[in-house]
Design a protein around this nucleic acid. Structure first.
Lengths: 214, 214, 214, 214
DNA sequence: GATGAATGAGGATTCATTCAT
DNA sequence: TATGAATGAATCCTCATTCAT
């Protein structure tokens, strides 16, 4: 008789647990749908269906479609943070550039390969211009992290220069990530190697007085 | 009998002229809407409204939304071809890399700044997977052009390597273009300079035995 | 110099001639489209296109879609009348029933096979109830003709009985005609024979004291 | 725990009940609209309006217009089957023809008078050629039933002859049904009697060595 | 919470018809 | 006359969101 033993704390706790399961369920479904259709073309009904719940249930946990994307982004970010150290920031920023790139990019790429929804979300609504505040926030967060790393790497740059470089690095990396995610096997490896080469050559002159570029 | 002749020919001519004006009007409106909303989110009704005509009128000139995008892409390509020599291919591919990049990128960037719709169209439907045949064709065409130039630049690469490089160059350039188009004035200039730097550093080792990178 | 010699009578005449050609052109096109799509699904634009003229031209000769059907029906009726004597009424109504049926039905069937649009028109707009006045008129005209023949055949019937019989005969014949038109070759011949048998057996008891049915 | 149980089962049950009511409502509305306008001219919006719901609601229960027709046809067929024995096939096929016709036709006619939508559906889309698969299926089903009965009646006919006869019988009956449905009272009775007479006279020579036709 | 029915504006597209030329 | 552009309401259908149960 579980009802009897349910104290004032355990019943809500169970409910809350169930709620979290639901949220997880919905987010997983959303991840799938976003990947398959992109954010804009994903319909909330499709997400609910994929999650095996009714549309109403979805709206019990998320006020609207955007909120799903935001939460999903957040969760993925969090997952990334706990899987890979402090959100992809390697402990040792003093590594030589090629090793640093490996240290930073390998986990990020691996994470995106395992969670392709993350990339789908990064591309935003497909509607240019002001996507949306929270979406923007995700972006900005990543952006800042890139700037942080760049700050360590290239102390000689002005803030403005660093911002430009960070934007370029991020944009370039994102588009390369699409290439990586769209391919498989050896081709994917080739793209991965190529992005690293690209970024290494781009950043090397900024970071070291004695470039070792081949 | 000039009267009969002139009326018989000038009336259709005027009508045709009006039709062409409408098409131009509609394409301009479409360009605007595509820029603002992206291809997928652009509605034919919105395009018609922007053009100041009824939905029916739009469909007198275009069989469907895709046809608008295709025609717009075609017109822009054509416009590009006649504005800038032979579709952005500079006469002299033997230029030193920095000059070559200027020669290739400056017109392309200028063109995209003047015709931001082109970029919007390049981004496709936003729906992953099979976008659409003609859309794809546009892409492939550009792709081939990039490979051509790369062929001249880097005769040492295998076909597969060249394809990878071309994809990366194109992806990188497209994403940088977004940055450029999203900014203005000095910021824009900074991005432009940065893309060139990026590509120069990336390609230099491939092209020249004696790199001049600072 | 045809303009000079065009007197006040010949110019209008030419215009009128041209008009009649246009009408014929349009009606022929309409016949084709009605056959292929049925009356309801036929679009005036499609008719104009088939006729090789613009929608506007069509509306210069016909006030609306219905008018086309009416005129087409009329023309076909007229054509029938002049091809086959006095609109399918045989000279000799005193023939024995089987011969009479041949004499009446063979031309009608032949005519409908050559002009399948007629049948398409008879089926009306597909919208039950009061189709439309003129459409109705066509129907009524045929109806009356059937009653005429029946009047000769079966003088014993009351007016009401005759009306019922005429309606049944007509309905039955129309539906059989569909079967005939939908088939070809031997199958068509079989249907033709069958309709005659059907009508013969139906009418024989009404017409003759001594049935000769096998 | 009856409370929990009752709420957990009765709420869905009530919802489901509402859904079924809606479906019934929509089908009834569809029946009305199909009758008034025919299948082709019936609009889903009109059906929804007639049912007093929004277009979206209609599409919650039916994926498209055709599905409505199919479901309505199915329901009517089912209703027919349970109202009248085994889909209008009388127990005793060995009855004398006049009684057999009464036994077969009376229920069919009664059913169609009570459910005129059935007849509207039978007339198909109005567009010649390939109507639609399920529509076709309905037709074929009826066709087969007619052939079955004919098989009992007229064992002397070849398969091909039987098919022709069945087609003719069905076509003739359908068109007569239109007449019946379009009339009322005594007129309707007259038409009913007349169809029976027609079919009796048509089939008698096929079925019996000693015709009793008056 | 969970359900799924309900909404209604909006999507692309068609079409009979009108109008300026 | 002939043209074809122009109209706009109507078509089927979708979707984010809400509501009663």
């Amino acid at each position: 008789m579980p009802e009897a033993e349910s104290t004032e704390t355990s019943a809500p706790r169970r409910r809350q647990a169930r709620g979290e399961r639901r949220v997880a369920q919905l987010l997983e479904a959303a991840a799938g749908v976003f990947c398959r259709s992109g954010y804009a073309a994903a319909s909330t009904n499709a997400i609910a269906r994929e999650a095996g719940v009714s549309p109403g249930t979805l709206y019990q946990f998320f006020p609207n479609k955007e909120a799903i994307a935001i939460e999903l982004g957040g969760q993925l970010l969090h997952k990334a943070a706990e899987t890979h150290g402090q959100a992809f920031l390697p402990e040792n920023l003093a590594l030589p550039l090629p090793e640093l790139l490996d240290a930073v990019l390998d986990p990020v790429i691996a994470f995106n390969c395992e969670n392709p929804a993350f990339c789908a979300l990064m591309h935003g609504s497909g509607i240019p211009g002001h996507i949306n505040d929270e979406h923007e926030a995700l972006h900005t967060g990543i952006q800042e992290r890139v700037e942080q790393v760049l700050g360590h790497l290239t102390p000689g740059l002005s803030t403005a220069e660093r911002a430009v470089t960070a934007h370029v690095v991020l944009a370039v990396f994102k588009s390369s990530l699409d290439l990586i995610l769209a391919s498989e096997g050896a081709e994917r490896e080739a793209y991965i190697a190529e992005v690293k080469t690209l970024l290494r050559r781009y950043l090397e002159p900024l970071v070291a007085p004695l470039p070792t570029t081949p």
